[in-house]
Every structure is written in structure tokens, then in C-alpha cells.
Design a protein around this nucleic acid. Sequence first.
DNA 1: AAAATTAAATGACAAATGTAACTACCAGAG
DNA 2: CTCTGGTAGTTACATTTGTCATTTAATTTT
Lengths: 203, 203
Amino acid sequence: MKLLIVDDDLLVCQSLQLLLGNEDDLIVMDTAINGQEAIEKCQKEQPDVILMDIQMPIMDGIESTKRIKKQWPHIHIMMLTTFQDEKNIRLALKAGAEGYLLKSASIENMAQQIRALKAGTVILDADVLKRITEPDKMLLEGLTERETDIVELIAQGLSNKEIAEQLFLSVGTIRNMLSVILDKLEIRDRTQLAIYYWQRKNE
Amino acid sequence: MKLLIVDDDLLVCQSLQLLLGNEDDLIVMDTAINGQEAIEKCQKEQPDVILMDIQMPIMDGIESTKRIKKQWPHIHIMMLTTFQDEKNIRLALKAGAEGYLLKSASIENMAQQIRALKAGTVILDADVLKRITEPDKMLLEGLTERETDIVELIAQGLSNKEIAEQLFLSVGTIRNMLSVILDKLEIRDRTQLAIYYWQRKNE
DNA sequence: AAAATTAAATGACAAATGTAACTACCAGAG
DNA sequence: CTCTGGTAGTTACATTTGTCATTTAATTTT
């Protein structure tokens, strides 16, 4: 199986090459230091799988993934990055990447993961999956901490009673606070609040 | 690596056993024909990975996944099912399954996927990922046209009264229909419905 | 120390929501 | 023709929701 490694950090390229060199069915055919170069390398000789960083000069991993998948849909692309930033995860997967692993995660098993990727499944770091299925904080300007907590819980679908139990407050207090929140955000009811939340959440 | 196969279809169990028998690092330690039995087998001898069907008599794969992960978090569970029904995918992942493959997909590579699963990543069938990240088709399956209309309007934040005016129906009718919708989707109230809608709608 | 602010709670109230039971009409399948 | 399923409605009931006025305790400001 032919691999292409794309990372602007040469150290990363080298260590990956070393690491995968032991596996005799995996051949690191070449490396590239940015997305532009990756596309050129693909043109010369098409790899089966690309390990691609996201943050790179000239052309980033997302853009080049988009282009490569458009031209050669059969090439499998594994994003290999440092940060588990939700937006990037979504963008990468939307761009066509089939894998998303964190560099911090155990590198020992990467060979197996690459083989599975080639086999046609999607490979996700376990933490990454959590990020995209149950995401976290956002901007609710003008709200206090406690109020923000309540918004989060309402956006999870909890009733006032449940929120009260969760926060160890009385139901009346929750209702009062929600009333203040709705007033601040100029929104009518909890359902609209939940909608407000999720529409902004997913940009 | 010790495997446990859980499927009420004996044919499936046998063919999987045969298929994986070639791989000498994978040992099918036992099989079970429902979730209840799977838990018992786990108690006797803990497998590294479980291949689990969803639809089974007595106790289904979701419920038993929940229980097994609660008791033995280190056991990796791969759902292996026929249908890519969005609700089940979400339920399975929520229950703690780390993998979700379709039986229809290429079985040849399953060994590699199992190894990758053991290594700690999440394994998803490529089509399955699409379902949960960009569901073109809303999972408003099972709802009639009218009911879908109402869901749409609730997701816009309208009250029952406003919906009634928009559709030229009585408020009572809207309330009844909403009641049916909530029942069908197994959801408690309009806020949760709006959340349900937007979580799937947005990317 | 006195005054002002804030977090938390109460009680009362109106409106909205969700459930249940039951009726009625219509269209299509068998 | 009967049976089913979808649409539409009514009444009744219990619960939840959102608003307001007011109180208390704690904290901060002045």
C-alpha cells in the first residue's frame, strides 16, 4: 500500500516514515510539506492513503483534501492533527477525509488504522467522535455563568424540574432565571431558546 | 485477541467465526444469541472485542451494550447490523459502542477493523458517518406529511396557536398531532423535538 | 456602618402544553 | 363491503411554563 505523508513539520514526516517503515505492506512513497505539493505528488504517482496535517502554509489540509478527493475519489485521506477543534473536524470530514486522528493519540496502532482506512471504513479518534456528536460551549453574550448553565441544559432538552435537580436549586428559581434569560435575549420561550442555541452552535 | 460474537442468526455467527478463523491473532472465544446471554458470557470470560447485532430477542444489542460498557468499560463493542437506521446508530454510539459496521459492507476487511477498534479508535462504516453528520433525509421517518409540516413549524419556534393559524386548523388538532409525533419519535416535549430536528438538520 | 446589589426562594396567576378518550369523515386496500 | 389509516375536531384534565411582586440572606460598594 502506497502512502503519502503531508506535514510542514519535517520531524513529523520523518518519524512517521520511520514508524511505518517497519510494516512491510506499507510503503511511504513520498512526503509533501503543504497541500499544494501534495496535489502535485498525487499527480505524479497516486498513493492509496494520504496522512495529512491540517495546518500548513500555502495550502492547508482541508482545501487540498477537497481538491484531491474531487480529482481522485479513490484516494483515502487521514487527517492527522494536533488539535481537536470541532470546526476543523467537521470541515475535514465534509471535505472528504475518511479519518481523523490526533497526533497525541497512540501512534503505535497507526498501521492498523491505515489498513482499516484503506479497507473503506471511517477512522475516528474516540475523543473526536464525542466532539462532533455532543459538543460544548458557545457565546451567549450578556448572560451570567449560571444563566449560561441553564441555557446549556435547556438546549439538552431538560425540563425546569430536571434543571433544578441538576443545579440543586428550586424550580421557582429556574423559572425566574429563565424568564430573565428570555428577556435578555429577546426570545419568547424555551423552545425558541433551544433553537437559538443550536442554530448558532453549528454555524 | 479474544472475540465474542452476538447474533440471533446462527448462520451469521458461524460465517463470522469461519471468516475470522483464518486470522491467527483473533480467537472467537464464544458466541451468544441475545444480549442477556452476551452479558453472561462476559461474566465468565471477558472478551477484548464484541461483535454485536442490534435486533435480537429477549435483550437487544443497544441495551446489552449499555450494561456491558457500564460494567466492563474496557471491552470494545462493534455493532454489526443490517440496517443503517439513524436512530439506532445514535443509540448504539450513545450506549457506548465504538464501532458501527453494516453486514452488507465488505466483510473481508473486518479483521483489520477489529484490530483498529481494539487499538482504541472509533470505526464507522463510511455511509453510516454520512447519516449522522449530514443527514439529507431527516429522520422524520414514520411521520405523515401533515406531521412533518408541524415538526417543521415547531422547529421554527412557533407556538401551537401560531401553527394552527398557519395551517388553518384548530389548536386542539395541533396539540393532538404533536402528541402523536412525540409518541412516534419517543420524545417528551416540543423543545426536545426542536433540538432533535436541528441536531440532524445542521450539517 | 449604611446602602446597594445579587442570588435564591416563594406564592400567585394566566397561558401554554401534553395526554386521553371519543367522534366524524374520507379514501384506498383487501 | 368492511377495515384500516390519515385527517380533523371537541372536551376534559393535569402539568409545565413564563411573569410578577415580594422576601431573605449574603456580598459588595460607598
